[in-house]
Simulated assay, not measured.
Amino acid sequence: MIKKDKSEILKLFGKNLRKVRESKGFTQEQLANELGLEISQISRIERGVINTSIYTLYQVSTFFDIDVNELFDLSE
């Protein structure tokens, strides 16, 4: 198993979030409003700039009705 560094993991996580969000037909603004977050926070998560909280991860997976593992596909 090849280990990935923090930056790479955050970017892959963000890419997965973007893919799920777009597949469900939501903009960053709509998702932010639904979760009570700033649009800029969604943007920073999707770009891999920040390490989001476990609670935000829970909110996203619950809102989109997905297993959190979908957001952690780090196979790229």
Results as ranks from 00 to 15, higher is better:
75 S>T: 14
28 Q>A: 02
41 Q>Y: 14
61 S>H: 02
45 I>W: 12
75 S>M: 05
6 K>S: 12
7 S>Y: 00
13 F>H: 05
18 R>S: 14
30 Q>G: 08
16 N>V: 01
37 L>S: 05
10 L>D: 08
76 E>H: 12
13 F>C: 07
6 K>E: 07
15 K>D: 07
71 L>G: 05
6 K>W: 01
62 T>F: 02
39 I>L: 14
30 Q>W: 00
66 I>N: 11
30 Q>D: 09
30 Q>F: 02
26 F>T: 00
7 S>F: 03
74 L>H: 03
54 I>P: 05
31 L>V: 14
58 Y>H: 11
27 T>V: 03
10 L>K: 10
9 I>D: 10
40 S>N: 11
44 R>P: 07
50 I>M: 05
28 Q>C: 00
23 S>F: 00
57 L>H: 08
71 L>I: 04
35 L>C: 14
55 Y>V: 13
64 F>V: 00
70 E>Y: 13
22 E>Q: 15
23 S>Q: 10
20 V>W: 01
70 E>T: 06
48 G>N: 06
56 T>L: 02
33 N>T: 10
67 D>F: 03
53 S>Q: 04
34 E>M: 03
10 L>A: 11
69 N>Y: 07
23 S>H: 09
12 L>D: 04
21 R>W: 06
43 S>V: 07
60 V>F: 15
25 G>N: 07
2 I>A: 14
40 S>L: 05
65 D>N: 15
23 S>M: 02
5 D>Q: 05
11 K>H: 08
56 T>S: 10
24 K>L: 06
49 V>K: 10
29 E>W: 07
34 E>Y: 08
45 I>N: 11
1 M>K: 07
39 I>Q: 12
39 I>H: 13
73 D>T: 11
61 S>F: 07
39 I>M: 03
26 F>L: 13
51 N>E: 14
66 I>L: 02
64 F>S: 01
57 L>S: 09
18 R>W: 02
29 E>Q: 06
56 T>Q: 08
24 K>D: 01
21 R>E: 03
6 K>G: 00
16 N>E: 02
50 I>R: 03
46 E>K: 10
43 S>L: 11
44 R>F: 05
43 S>I: 01
29 E>L: 13
19 K>M: 04
74 L>A: 00
74 L>R: 05
3 K>M: 09
72 F>E: 01
45 I>T: 08
42 I>L: 04
11 K>F: 12
34 E>D: 04
28 Q>V: 00
17 L>I: 14
69 N>K: 15
75 S>R: 10
39 I>K: 15
63 F>G: 05
16 N>C: 08
39 I>S: 02
73 D>G: 13
42 I>P: 14
6 K>P: 00
46 E>H: 00
19 K>E: 08
34 E>K: 10
29 E>F: 03
65 D>F: 06
73 D>W: 02
48 G>Q: 07
8 E>C: 03
68 V>I: 09
28 Q>T: 01
35 L>I: 06
26 F>Q: 00
29 E>R: 14
41 Q>M: 14
45 I>E: 08
13 F>Q: 07
70 E>K: 15
40 S>Y: 00
69 N>S: 14
47 R>V: 03
19 K>D: 03
16 N>M: 06
10 L>I: 00
36 G>N: 09
35 L>S: 13
19 K>G: 08
